[in-house]
């Protein structure tokens, strides 16, 4: 997708689901929503949510665990269904975000071009939520940021077929609706709830991790960025909202670091591990957490905090990019 097509895709993919939500409200108001719609919504919400969290984020971007090829393909396809972009592009943006979090070059920091006052704050939040996707200059080169993944033909194929996969993710809940009701109306409302409404809800939850998750919430670790743990977002985001923990330990398979920090994605990964379907799971014990917290307390955190290296290797012309450097 070039700049104009990208703009068009973002526009359609943010407005159409919004209209879908309005249509769904009208139907709901007139008692025209049934259990089949709820089933279609929940099934697709879980598929898209785990696709982004367990698949795109933990398996691909941070290599928090390893698994068999069919499971990798399943999670990457599920992630594509969520509609947040092809895996290679999503991961490239995300790895860049980690390298320069809340500093110049971060694709979605709420502190970019910081302006004073409440208006400035809202502008920043909007940019980090959805506004950044409308930036005509937005580009994170997959060759630079995820050559490891681009060498995987499966991920290139899924990236190439991104839009048909997104559309299939709207037809599929329609089929669930049809199977449960046997009517075309059931198909249409299933596609509405499990497709458009799910698209809206699930994407705004991910966006909220980028906006709210760098603005409001607690910080356990003084990371050199503004990442926050946002407890109320934890369950709907499948654990992604323990975002400060995640910035302290990007590769950790679990973003929740206490028993009460519910992390559904981590439960899925440990379930896969128990079933011997996942291995090399990155686990960070309490002692390592404490040591990191102590260390960061000394260096001082926040967006003014020092990050090492000062200029990310991935942004330097003369440096060879290693995978370890960009994840």
């Amino acid at each position: 997708m070039d700049g104009r097509k990208h703009y068009g895709f973002i526009l359609v993919s943010s407005l159409l689901p919004l209209f879908g939500v309005v249509a769904a409200m009208v139907l709901l108001w007139n008692s025209l929503a049934g259990p089949s719609d709820l089933v279609a919504f929940l099934v697709m919400f879980v598929i898209a949510g785990l696709g982004v969290s367990t698949g795109y984020h933990r398996l691909l971007a941070h290599r928090s665990f390893r698994t068999y090829r069919p499971i990798k393909i399943f999670f990457a396809t599920a992630g594509a269904i969520a509609g947040q972009g092809p895996p290679l592009i999503w991961v490239a943006h995300h790895r860049r975000h980690h390298r320069v979090a809340d500093k110049p070059g971060d694709p979605h920091s709420p502190y970019q071009e910081e302006q004073p006052g409440i208006r400035g704050a809202l502008k920043g939040l909007w940019h980090s939520h959805l506004g950044w996707l409308f930036d005509p200059g937005l580009t994170s080169d997959p060759i630079r940021y995820c050559p490891d993944l681009a060498r995987d033909r499966d991920l290139r194929v899924i990236s190439r077929w991104f839009i048909p996969i997104v559309l299939a993710g709207i037809v599929l809940p329609g089929l669930i609706g049809f199977a449960l009701t046997g009517t075309l109306f059931g198909f249409a409302t299933g596609a509405l709830w499990g497709g458009l409404v799910r698209f809206f809800v699930s994407n705004h939850i991910t966006y909220a991790v980028n906006s709210i998750g760098h603005y409001f919430g607690r910080r356990r670790f003084d990371t050199p960025d503004e990442s926050r743990n946002v407890a109320w977002l934890a369950i709907p985001s499948f654990g992604e909202a323990w975002h400060n923990n995640h910035h302290a330990f990007p590769r950790s398979a679990s973003h929740g670091m206490r028993w009460w920090e519910v992390d559904v994605s981590a439960l899925v990964i440990s379930g896969l591990k128990s079933a011997r379907l996942a291995w090399d799971v990155m686990e960070i014990d309490r002692e390592r957490q404490e040591r990191r917290a102590d260390g960061l307390r000394k260096t001082g955190g926040g967006r003014q905090g020092r990050s090492a290296p000062p200029v990310p290797l991935a942004e330097r012309k003369d440096a060879v990019v290693g995978v370890a450097d960009v994840e």
């Binding site: 070039d2 092809p86 997959p142 681009a150 290139r156």
Partner: peptide
């Protein structure tokens, strides 16, 4: 007029 994804596809297909 190629996107970054398309250039990626070309490079890694060549590989």
């Amino acid at each position: 007029g190629l996107s970054s994804l398309q250039v990626t596809e070309i490079v890694f297909t060549l590989e």
